[in-house]
Design a protein around this nucleic acid. Sequence first.
DNA 1: ACGGAGACTGGAAGCGCTTGCAGGATGCTG
DNA 2: CAGCATCCTGCAAGCGCTTCCAGTCTCCGT
Lengths: 346, 346
Amino acid sequence: MVGSWGMTGIEEVAQRAGVSTATVSRALSGNGPVSEATRERVQAAATELGYVVSSNASSLASGRTRNVGVVVPFLSRWYFSSVVEGAEAALLRKGYDLTLYNLSGGAESRRSVFEHFLLRKRVDAVIAVALELADDEVSRLLALHKPIVGIGGPIRGVRTLTLDDQGVARLATEHLIALGHTLIAHVGASTEFDLDFHLASTRRRGFEHAMHDAGLALRDDLYQPADFTINGGYQAGKQLLGRPFDRPTAIFAASDEMAIGCLLAARDLGLSVPHDVSIVGVDDHELADFFGLTTVAQFPQQQGERAVDVLMGELSPDAASESLTTDLPYRLIVRSSTARAHPPGR
Amino acid sequence: MVGSWGMTGIEEVAQRAGVSTATVSRALSGNGPVSEATRERVQAAATELGYVVSSNASSLASGRTRNVGVVVPFLSRWYFSSVVEGAEAALLRKGYDLTLYNLSGGAESRRSVFEHFLLRKRVDAVIAVALELADDEVSRLLALHKPIVGIGGPIRGVRTLTLDDQGVARLATEHLIALGHTLIAHVGASTEFDLDFHLASTRRRGFEHAMHDAGLALRDDLYQPADFTINGGYQAGKQLLGRPFDRPTAIFAASDEMAIGCLLAARDLGLSVPHDVSIVGVDDHELADFFGLTTVAQFPQQQGERAVDVLMGELSPDAASESLTTDLPYRLIVRSSTARAHPPGR
DNA sequence: ACGGAGACTGGAAGCGCTTGCAGGATGCTG
DNA sequence: CAGCATCCTGCAAGCGCTTCCAGTCTCCGT
């Protein structure tokens, strides 16, 4: 930490420690046998000189970059930034860097990311979050022997961590059903949203199954599409709760943000939650607790971490990769936005 | 795009184009003279082979990585992820990669970021967002000739883009004063928060100046510290608005999230906004519009972009860096949470 | 027509590390 | 005690590009 001159190379360390550069490399990286005594001497020399390997030289020589690319469709949404946060922390711990690719720039930027950025051997692997990759995008990466792991929708030929969206939806719905609700509305994704996040229609299916299994009728007018934002949920909630007849006594929203929107809509309509209407969401968004929202939690940070774990597995020799997809945990968290259904008023 | 074999090097391109590798390098990178005809031939060959330079080799040889490090204290907050998003887009456009360092892991991770990660010559420059860098952290980076630009609090010896927090606070406050309010409360940062974001106390000062200039009294009991979250703002709002006497008719919150908290608190107390109380925030958070919140907007994405612009300037030869700090734009956006003060009721 | 100034191009020397290979010690086995 | 397996270590050959330098060729000016 004295070096103050920044320009220390492996050579200087070698001299100071009285060994060859080869040994320094081995001592510092832990690859290859080095006697304990030597290792310590090298470590000391390196620290004294403030030596840090040049990742470029190292990568070029070894073929490993100790860097992984994380590709997300958005960044400024709670879910995605949380996943990235989790992944970043896990990678840092392993000594890896994270380079971020955000696709929200549109098709244009998406192409350039896949055709140039990811290919310049800057990353050892990539984590794709909630992304539907085209076959050629996948094969191009695989051709470079770069492991990919996805989080979210299953991607063909790629190890993926997925949330059992049907199960999630089912759990949320059954919670409402168990509370005695029968007129249950669902706020899901609008179709254009469904392109990139199949989760939406999958959750809807889970909802429908649960309803069906309970012998409850599915009514088209109790479904409202929205865009996964609070505002969208609010509009949808207004539609659902504003009707004079057959107002649902419960709403299952496919995301917490939409659920919160519904909650605010209920409030504005003079309905009290959960007395007049029960609401359940999905995510356990940072605001869920504040609003007392009952929700099916998923754990984005942990998802990021797990993706990293899987990746590290793939990058190691023991490539005994298990099944191609792994289920992510989820859990019902009951707060104050759901309650037993009342016998119809009037 | 045929290469399908991924393993194309500059050599192959050179052969296919019938030139030397030196020329290929020049043609593709645009450094050094190459005849138009040759350039085209090389381009064609490269495209046909699906050649993409190895950034490692390139970096090692040239000393430039075309990669910048972005260091943030949090990621899963609207402001930070927006800045990163802006920076990412701008960098992508310039052909740069962004590697992300999130310091929320605590002092431990902070040290390792500064002592190892940023030093391994993986980045050409760093952007520090709302970070107070210690002198040695700065000098260590500067010693490597890595430009740094900061966004937020001024950092000694570093080019910084800063928001005139006093001006912002003043603007918000004066808006309220102009509406006839005299009993104005302020929700600012708690002290522990102020360590990393000096913005908090600076905004408070702006508020105080504005009040003072208008000849209005500053009352300690009309100040509430909070933690920049909706929940924190809610608690603070409750305190402020729940009192039986001298209830403020307006609140200036140092962030939109806190302002929204106040707004919800008002609602829960049966107060109507803006009839009973006017509320103004800072940020133009994505939720501000939904809640009809009047706010002083800052533009985080643009801030990210501008940081990149500045960086590109520093990385170019024309290092005629202007003044060390540059002011960021802000603007009052009036929505429906502020209105003319009523003559005191009763 | 000739010298010189460009404009291009190729040769080749690295950039700073990693790692296969081989040599020298050391420790065991029979 | 010879013979061999082990453990360390150093040598040196690259990793795939960039760029200095020098050489070739074309184009002007005089």
